[in-house]
Design a protein around this nucleic acid. Structure first.
Length: 329
DNA sequence: GATGCGTGGCC
DNA sequence: TGGCCAAGCAT
């Protein structure tokens, strides 16, 4: 849970999760819907699937006994160099580095290491240094202390090194160049993508579509999204023309005769690490007698939405739709 | 080795 | 608002 996620965010999820799945065995046997529901809102959902895979590996391949070395631990799904080091040092007292973002930041500043921490190969530099410095007696406490330093006095921005207990060892601070470290190249901006989001209701419920097994929000059930770019085949069309195009596509591809209209209110925006979605919400009435079975999705009553795991962007679309009903009433 | 993968908080 | 950041990993 703590991979790329702050402790503050994780704590309530962790407590609920451990209550629901108290043992490796229980996690291995968990129902997928329950698992995803327990993870709902935490993000990076492949972590949940990998966690269960790892539990199943431990039960079946390791007969319930954890591997205890960094190399052995990395055989488990979802466990990479950092997590393996953290488990090996904290749980099994192995004197091995756990290099996370905190460790990068702390040691880059302490030792003025100017390798670009955005590059994968740089991790080896830090592992080498830390494996020479780490306490042989209390390796877990050592790694935790580094992470706590990085999360308190030596944060990425607004750090307060003057109050730090290790300032006397902080070379970049002593040299007055702490703001030069760590060196980290910038990430690309999220790519903007325009969608229509469809809220279509029949007597059987709202139409939800399952996203493919790969890519953003894989496996999640959402209101159907249509990429405007692929809808027009690259051509520039006015919005009414675009909506007409979508209507005819729904009819020809899925036998859904429908008149679409924009809902009131603002479009839904949602930014992921690499994509920025701008969703124009549409709704419309279906002909009561049309056959609903051609569209590759499910019709779900709103009363059953609590049983479906919603991503943040799906929640936003649902809220936007409900708000539009209120303001139009 | 670069890219994709969520969400929330901060300024 | 937009950019950056957060106890990274799989492909």
């Amino acid at each position: 849970m703590l991979q790329q996620t702050q402790v503050q965010t994780v704590i309530p999820y962790y407590q609920r999760f451990m209550q629901q799945f108290p043992t490796v065995q229980s996690l291995a046997e968990a129902n997928e819907d329950n698992l995803m529901k327990a993870w709902e809102g935490l993000g990076y959902y492949s972590r949940a699937r990998n966690l269960q895979k790892a539990a199943r590996q431990i039960v079946t391949d390791y007969h319930g006994k954890w591997p205890q070395t960094t190399l052995g631990l990395q055989e488990l799904s979802g466990i990479g160099p950092y997590t393996a080091g953290a488990i090996a040092s904290i749980a099994f007292n192995q004197p091995t580095a756990a290099v996370d973002g905190n460790a990068f930041r702390v040691f880059a500043r302490l030792l003025e290491i100017d390798d670009d921490i955005a590059k994968p190969q740089t991790r080896k530099v830090f592992e080498n240094v830390i494996n020479h410095l780490i306490s042989q007696e209390r390796p877990g406490d050592f790694n935790q202390a580094i992470m706590d330093l990085g999360a308190s006095f030596m944060t990425a921005t607004n750090y307060d090194t003057d109050q730090s207990p290790v300032k006397a060892f902080n070379q970049s601070y002593l040299d007055g160049i702490e703001d030069h470290f760590p060196v980290k190249t910038k990430k690309k901006r999220p790519v903007p993508i325009d969608y229509f989001g469809l809220v279509i209701q029949s007597k059987k419920g709202y139409l939800l579509e399952q996203r493919p097994a790969t890519g953003v929000l894989s496996h999640f059930w959402m209101f159907p999204l249509f990429n405007k770019q692929s809808l027009t085949d690259g051509k520039q069309l006015t919005e009414p023309k675009l909506i007409q195009q979508l209507e005819s596509q729904l009819l020809s591809d899925f036998q859904l005769p429908i008149h679409l209209r924009k809902i009131s209110g603002k479009p839904v925006n949602h930014t992921f690490t690499h994509q920025k979605w701008h969703i124009t919400m549409l709704t419309g009435q279906l002909n009561a007698n049309c056959d609903l079975s051609y569209f590759p999705g499910n019709w779900v009553q709103a009363t059953n939405f609590t049983n479906v795991t919603f991503s943040k962007v799906q929640s936003k679309m649902w809220i936007a739709y409900q708000d539009s009903l209120i303001s139009e009433a």
